Simulated assay, not measured.
Amino acid sequence: MDGNGRWAQARGRPRLFGHHAGARRVREIVECCPRFGVKYLTIFAFSTENWKRTQVEISGLMSLFRRYISKEMKALAAQNVRVRFIGDRLRLDAKLVQLMDDLEHETETNDGIHLTIALNYGGRDEVARATKRLAQDVADGRLLPEDVNEETLPRYLDTHVLPDPDLVIRTSGEARISNFLLWQSAYAEYEFIDTLWPDFSADELGRLCSKFGARDRRFGAVPR
């Protein structure tokens, strides 16, 4: 969900103004997912690299996350949205972590849209944490080294209960993946678009989903 800060600065407003606009856009995109047959939606809210930003922006973002969860909890539950968080929670403040836990608990029986929020998330960090847990199981004798393969590691990832993504959309004109779902996106289709996140609309999502649906996905095979 890139481009919030630039969207705000283009309007002569502080970067946090753009982040608030971006948070409002999340609701519209979540609500339109059933229309396009999207069952699983993952949004990248805050990366492990975002701690390099100014303290003012970081504090504002953390306040925004707390406010968003508190405000949207009942609505998400009523809309049959199942919410999960991925990322390392150890660096997040206790109040935010409690709200994250509460939202997951409040929506755990829902089976409509599965909304995953990546918060203090980094693909490399996730793989490192997963590898550490896997290595501990090997050291404790719960897993044999010869049984470790590409089917094993995903069971230790934050996304172990989720399917791999089919389509990754990067907004704001940046043509890089920025440490997002590195393992899971090995065969995802990518769309790099110029639209800044606060301007990303349901119509544009629909267009990208239609374009994705027309692609021939061979997963390394050749056409017959």
Rank of each mutant, 00 (worst) to 15 (best):
G12C: 05
G12L: 08
R13E: 15
R13C: 15
R13A: 15
R13H: 11
R13G: 06
R15C: 10
L16M: 14
L16D: 08
F17Q: 03
F17P: 03
F17R: 05
G18K: 00
G18P: 03
G18Y: 04
G18L: 02
G18V: 00
H19L: 05
H19G: 09
H19N: 07
H19C: 10
H20D: 08
H20G: 05
H20S: 08
A21R: 04
G22F: 09
A23Y: 08
R24I: 00
R25Y: 02
R25M: 01
V26T: 14
R27A: 13
E28G: 13
E28N: 13
I29P: 08
I29L: 14
V30M: 13
V30W: 13
E31L: 15
E31I: 09
E31C: 12
C32G: 11
C32D: 13
C33N: 08
F36C: 04
F36S: 12
F36R: 09
F36M: 06
G37E: 12
G37D: 06
G37Y: 07
V38F: 02
K39G: 02
Y40A: 01
Y40S: 03
L41A: 04
L41R: 03
T42N: 09
T42C: 15
T42V: 08
I43C: 15
F44V: 13
A45Y: 03
A45I: 14
A45H: 04
F46K: 03
F46D: 09
S47W: 00
E49F: 00
N50W: 02
W51L: 10
W51K: 01
K52H: 12
K52T: 09
T54K: 01
Q55C: 00
Q55W: 00
Q55Y: 01
V56A: 05
V56E: 15
V56T: 12
E57N: 01
E57A: 04
E57V: 02
I58V: 15
S59M: 09
S59D: 14
L61R: 04
L61M: 09
L61Q: 06
M62Q: 08
M62R: 06
S63Y: 04
S63L: 05
